[in-house]
Simulated assay, not measured.
Amino acid sequence: MKEEEKLYHAIIELEDYCLEWTSEDDLEETVNKRVFVTLEFIGTIAQHSCYSKESTEAVQQILEIEINRSPNNKGESLSNIYQELSMLMVDCTEFITIKSNDEEFYSKKYKIYQDLEALIAITKFLINPCYACKLRALAWLIRRSPYSGDWTFLLSIVASRYVHIVTVHGDPACSSQAKIGNSWLHRLGVFLLKTCSDNNEAPPIELVDLIAAIPGNPTASVKNGKALRMLNYMEAASKPEYMHEQPSEILVGTYLALELLGVIDANRQFEHFNKIEKAVSFYAMYYMNHGCPPSVNKLQNVSELSWLDAKNLMNQNYFSKMVFEYQYKFILHNMHGGEF
Rank of each mutant, 00 (worst) to 15 (best):
I214Y: 01
V280W: 01
I264Y: 07
P293I: 14
L260V: 07
F282Y: 14
K6Q: 11
N200K: 14
Y51N: 05
L185C: 04
V252Y: 09
Y286F: 15
Y326A: 12
E76I: 01
I96L: 10
A257F: 08
M89V: 00
V37I: 13
E94T: 15
I127L: 07
V163M: 10
G337D: 00
N199F: 09
L7M: 06
C133R: 08
P240F: 04
L85G: 00
Y287S: 09
S281W: 04
K74L: 08
M1W: 14
G253P: 01
S175N: 10
I250V: 15
A310K: 03
S156Q: 06
H336F: 09
S295T: 10
K194G: 03
G149L: 04
I214F: 00
L85R: 10
N232G: 01
I331W: 11
E57I: 11
I45C: 06
E3D: 07
E4P: 03
G337L: 02
E117A: 04
N274A: 07
I98F: 06
C174H: 12
R161N: 06
T195F: 03
Q316L: 07
Y318F: 10
Y328T: 10
T195W: 13
F191K: 11
D16C: 02
N68W: 11
W184P: 02
Q177S: 03
A237I: 11
S79C: 10
V59D: 07
I122T: 09
E206Q: 07
V90T: 11
I65S: 05
Y110S: 07
L138W: 08
S156N: 02
V252S: 06
H272V: 07
N80T: 12
L19R: 15
K134T: 03
D265Y: 10
H333C: 02
W151C: 02
N80K: 05
